[in-house]
C-alpha cells in the first residue's frame, strides 16, 4: 500500500482535517461547477441541478473524514463521480416513481463514503471533460493576475480564440515575437497550475 507522501498535502487530506477553510472553499469552487454542469447535462433543470450540487458537496463534507486513504481504491474525483452519479440516479428514479419513498438514507450515506474503483466505475468521459474544463478555468482564475493585461490578451486571443499572432500583435502594439512569447509563457504557467491542482486532488 502506497504511503501518501508527507510533504504533499492533498486537498482531500486538508478537507479531512476539518479545519482548513481554504481547502473547503477550493473544493466547493473546483467541484461545485463540475457537479452542476454534469447534472445539467444529464437532464436536470437549473434548480434541481443546483440542489443536487449542494447535496453532493454536503455529502463530501460529512464523509471526508471517513474516506480511506488508499489511492488504489480510486481517485478523489472518481469517488465524487460516484456520489454524483448515484444522487442523479436517485433523483431521476424518485421523479419517475414519485409516490414512492426516497430509499434508505443510511445506505446512501455508506455508499457515499466508499470510494469507487476506477476499473469498476471509472469516471465517464463526460465527467472527465467537465472536470478538465473546470480545472483549466480554476487555474486561469489563479494565475491571471500574475500577467500584464496585454500579455494575457495576447495569450487569450491567439491560443484560445485562435487569431493569428500578427493580427493580435498589431492590435496590442506588440511584435509577433512578443505575442508568441506571451502566449507560451501564459500557457506554460497555466499548464503547471493545472498539474498542481490535479496533484493536489489525486491521492
Amino acid at each position: 500500500m502506497a504511503e501518501p507522501p508527507l510533504t504533499r498535502v492533498t486537498l482531500l487530506a486538508r478537507i479531512r482535517d476539518g479545519r482548513d477553510a481554504d481547502a473547503w472553499r477550493e473544493f466547493v469552487h473546483l467541484y461545485g461547477p463540475v457537479v452542476y454542469r454534469f447534472a445539467r447535462n444529464r437532464g436536470l433543470q437549473d434548480a434541481d441541478a443546483a440542489d443536487l450540487m449542494q447535496d453532493v458537496l454536503r455529502s463530501v463534507a460529512r464523509n471526508a473524514h471517513r474516506m480511506e486513504y488508499d489511492p488504489k481504491r480510486g481517485t478523489f474525483r472518481g469517488w465524487l463521480y460516484t456520489v454524483t452519479r448515484n444522487k442523479i440516479y436517485n433523483f431521476l428514479t424518485a421523479q419517475r416513481n414519485r409516490p414512492r419513498g426516497t430509499g434508505d438514507a443510511d445506505a446512501q450515506e455508506r455508499l457515499d463514503a466508499t470510494p469507487a474503483r476506477d476499473d469498476e466505475t471509472g469516471p465517464d468521459t463526460e465527467w472527465e471533460k467537465e472536470y478538465q474544463r473546470r480545472i483549466s478555468a480554476r487555474a486561469m482564475e489563479r494565475v491571471r493576475h500574475e500577467f500584464q493585461p496585454s500579455t494575457w490578451a495576447a495569450f487569450w486571443e491567439t491560443a484560445v480564440e485562435g487569431k493569428p499572432a500578427g493580427e493580435v500583435g498589431a492590435r496590442l502594439k506588440m511584435s509577433a515575437g512578443a505575442v508568441y512569447v506571451a502566449k507560451s509563457r501564459v500557457l506554460a504557467r497555466l499548464r503547471d497550475e493545472v498539474r498542481k491542482l490535479m496533484d493536489a486532488e489525486e491521492n
Binding site: Y36, A47, A49, M53, R58, A61
Partner: peptide
C-alpha cells in the same frame, strides 16, 4: 440561475463548521 445561490450556500455551510 439557482447555481450561484447554491454555491454560496454550500460555501457558507462548510464555513460554519469552522
Amino acid at each position: 440561475s439557482a447555481y450561484y445561490k447554491a454555491l454560496a450556500a454550500a460555501e457558507e455551510e462548510l464555513r460554519v463548521t469552522k
